[in-house]
Every structure is written in C-alpha cells, then in structure tokens.
Design a protein around this nucleic acid. Structure first.
Length: 257
DNA sequence: ATGGTCGCGCAGCGA
C-alpha cells in the first residue's frame, strides 16, 4: 500500500499536475494540504475519474486539507475532535482508509518567533496531541500526514540560522513534534533514510530549489503497528521541477499490505 | 548583505 502527502499550494492551479502525478505515482491514499478552495469548489469528480474517493475540509482562499483513497474511506471527520470547539482555520481532516486512521494536517506557519501566530502554532500542536488522544490509540494503525512547518532536526534544514526567520527550528516547535512521538508516532521517512539534507520544501525565490536550500517539513508520522510495515520511502523531487510546481514535494511511503 | 517568487484576487499580504 502506498501512502503519500503533498502540500499542493492551490488545488486550482495545481490540478493538472496533481492528476498527472496521481496517474504516475499511483498512491492508494493521498493527503493534500493548502488546497485554497472552498468545499463546494473541491474537484471531487476529477479524482473519482481517477478511481479515488475524496474528502475535503476547506475555507476558501487559504488553508484547506483533503484525503483521497482508492482503498475505502470511512468515518470522515473535519477539524479537532478534542471537544474544545472549532479551529479558526481549516487545517485538519481525519478518515479511516483500509483500517488506517489517516489525518491530513496543515500546521500553522508561525511567521515569527514569539508572535501571536507562533503561539497559535504551539497551541495548535497541543490540540493535535489532544485530538489524537481523544479519537484513537497508538495501538491501532495511525498515520498523521502533512505539512508540519517544523524541521525535526538540524539535519533537515539547509541552514538553521537562516531558516524561515527563526521559526520551524526552535526548541518549542521541535518539542511539540517530540510530544507527538512520545504519544506513539514515528517519522516514517527516517526509518528508511538517515541521510542529512533531504528536503520537502524549497522557497520559490532565489533559485533555492536548484541550489539545494530547503527544509524537510512535510512528514508522515506513523503509530507502531503501521511503521513496522514500512518498506520504502521517498521524497518525490520530480514534482518540484518544471512548470508551475508547488513549493513542496510529495512524501511517499510504501507499507506492506 | 540584500532580495529574490508565488497564489490570492486586484492591493498588498502571507508563505
């Protein structure tokens, strides 16, 4: 079974590339982030034509997350299920596909260390941990996939001192990730590859992609019964090349059926 | 050292 996650940075602009990518890579389950469309504008027909059921949680111009599956989709749930009310932004969608509790997440950027947005980011991760505890257990197959806007270690950043104005690499952000791991999740990519300087996002500006200046901030976190099934992992750099790419590349994880 | 490009939507902000 092939599981993928991709921050597409606008479903509308990216749809032709997404369709070609689905046909080529053939994921069984795909999570998308930053769809930037309202639910009524979500192109579910384009995906059903390719054999996928789909669910979307959007808000219009910003944010928005989706899950596609060709191995079934049940118990779709938008937003947090921690009982603390709705988030102001569309950043979390959950569904069960082939027995796996899938979550497509788009963590807040944080903008600047210490800003209100940075505090919202840290609070958002706290809610994600509570959402996990309230809606599933680490003893079942769980995959939290998406744009975490956190680089787990300095090996995941081209230059920690220059990275994104200080955010994405701070101790509190990394501690928020570690909290999710303590709950019972593992970074699936790192179970296959330990090489440094492998990235999933590169700024559009200044030729950063071609110069190799990026960060690995798109992650697939899996619970123990699922991560034990991992067979292969890759970040699909080809999807970052050519005309009108997203600034993120997909992360693809193969697990035994 | 600085700024650089996209997407949104039509000015300038967010990433």
């Amino acid at each position: 079974m092939r599981i993928a996650t991709w921050n597409v940075n606008s479903l509308k602009v990216r749809l032709p590339r997404i369709e070609a990518w689905l046909a080529e890579v053939q994921p069984d389950i795909a999570c998308f982030q930053e769809t930037k469309v309202a639910d009524k504008a979500f192109p579910s027909l384009a995906f059903s034509t390719l054999g996928y059921e789909s669910a979307h949680f959007g808000q219009g111009q910003w944010n928005g997350v989706a899950i596609l599956s060709r191995v079934g989709m049940e118990d779709v749930s938008a937003d947090f299920g921690d009982g603390a009310g709705p988030d102001a932004e569309a950043r979390l969608l959950s569904a069960t596909c082939a027995g796996i509790r899938m979550m497509s997440i788009y963590a807040p950027n944080g903008r600047a260390v210490g800003s209100d947005h940075y505090q919202y980011k840290l609070a958002w991760f706290e809610r994600l941990k509570n959402h996990l505890a309230a809606t599933c257990t680490p003893e079942q197959p769980v995959a939290v996939c998406g744009d975490f806007n956190v680089a787990p270690t300095d090996a995941d950043v081209f230059d920690p001192a220059k990275a994104s104005g200080g955010t994405h690499v701070t101790l509190p952000e990394r501690e928020a990730l570690a909290e999710l791991e303590r709950w019972g999740l593992s970074d699936a990519f790192r179970t296959v590859w330990d090489a440094p300087n492998v990235y999933s996002w590169w700024d559009y500006r200044a030729g950063d992609f071609h110069e190799g200046r990026g960060m690995r901030i798109d992650l697939v976190l899996m619970s123990a019964p699922l991560v034990s099934r991992v067979q292969w992992a890759v970040i699909d750099r080809n999807a970052r090349k050519g005309k009108q790419p997203s600034d993120h590349a997909p992360v693809v994880i193969d697990v035994a059926d």
